[in-house]
């Protein structure tokens, strides 16, 4: 097998695995049961989506996708921080 066709197969396998990972994390978003669990699953989903974009970058050879992947990682991090602060604030409000 040549290196190029190996990369072709590897990226296809990776895309299948990452698709499964996305689907499985959606299960946790649906069943919850708490807000924290859903935020956690969403955070994992952005990391998996970042991996997905990376795999597409490898498959197509368009390295511009890499910048999108890094931007997505940044977005996921900020979203999780905002959600964590929201959970804290809501807990503080309920306590009062």
């Amino acid at each position: 097998m040549t290196a190029v066709s190996f990369i072709d197969w590897a990226s296809l396998v990776a895309l299948v695995l990452l698709t499964l990972a996305l689907l499985v994390s959606v299960v946790r978003i649906i069943i919850g049961p708490t807000l924290g669990d859903r935020v956690l699953a969403l955070d994992l989903m952005t990391v998996v989506a970042m991996g997905f974009i990376g795999a597409i970058a490898v498959r197509t050879g368009l390295t511009l996708y890499l910048d999108i992947a890094i931007a997505l990682a940044l977005l996921g991090f900020l979203a999780t921080i905002a959600f964590a602060r929201y959970i804290l604030r809501r807990a503080g409000r309920d306590a009062q």
Partner: peptide, 9 residues
């Protein structure tokens, strides 16, 4: 990534 998702569930 897939194992992380399975673990989360």
């Amino acid at each position: 990534s897939l194992l992380a998702a399975i673990g989360v569930v």
